[in-house]
Simulated assay, not measured.
Amino acid sequence: MQAIAVITHDDFEAALAAAREVDTLTVGGGLAAPLGAGLGGRVDALWDRVEDALVQAYEWGKEKAQGALAEAIAETEDLLASVGRQASSVHQAMMKRVTEYLTKLIDRALATVRPAVSVGNRTLELVGVEIAQTVSLSGSLKASITDLVNLTASGQLVVHARYGPGAGG
């Protein structure tokens, strides 16, 4: 059964809050080094620009958010180009925020999918869900941010819910 998981205002606000809570100063490990306070503040300001695009997308739609999206992407590219060897850390910090936003948004939207459906005198329970949308979480911040804006603008997730007999048969 195809179902729509609606992204409510509360879901959207919870996703934004989850992304804001990411501690960009401690992001690091592997090749990336933790960000200092100055660079962490620049990442926070950059996320604010991304958040502006997300808010416009949620409230007004994809077309109205294009200007804010273009500005956020340009500022992302400028920051990455200006920080030299710390670009990997900046990239990792932004991806952490992107991931937190997306995870919270999807989790909250999926919670609206019905856990059971009644057909005649039978109740079928949810046995699986597949999400129809794709969001790029590749190395490209531009693609990831653009996909977040597009998903947010749509206001919904299309899911394929599979229902079957409950534990009782």
Rank of each mutant, 00 (worst) to 15 (best):
A5L: 09
V6Y: 04
V6Q: 05
V6E: 10
I7W: 13
I7G: 02
H9M: 06
D10L: 06
D10H: 04
F12V: 06
F12M: 07
E13G: 02
A14F: 05
A19F: 04
A19G: 08
E21T: 07
V22H: 02
T24P: 01
V27H: 03
G28P: 01
G29A: 03
G29E: 00
G29P: 03
G30S: 08
P34C: 02
A37H: 15
G40M: 01
R42N: 08
L46Y: 00
W47C: 07
W47K: 02
E51D: 09
E51K: 03
E51F: 00
D52H: 11
L54C: 04
L54A: 03
V55A: 03
Y58K: 13
E59R: 07
W60D: 10
G67Y: 09
L69V: 08
A70N: 14
A70V: 07
I73T: 15
I73Q: 09
E75C: 03
E77K: 11
D78S: 07
D78N: 08
L80M: 10
L80T: 00
Q86W: 06
Q92Y: 13
M94I: 15
K96E: 15
T99E: 10
Y101I: 01
L102R: 04
L105T: 12
L105I: 15
A111W: 05
A116N: 06
A116W: 09
A116Q: 13
G120F: 05
T123W: 00
E125T: 15
L126G: 11
V127D: 06
I131A: 07
I131N: 05
A132V: 11
T134E: 12
V135P: 01
S136D: 15
S138L: 11
S144P: 01
L148R: 01
L151Y: 03
T152I: 06
A153K: 01
G155E: 00
G155M: 02
V158A: 12
H160T: 14
A161Q: 07
R162H: 12
G164P: 11
P165Q: 02
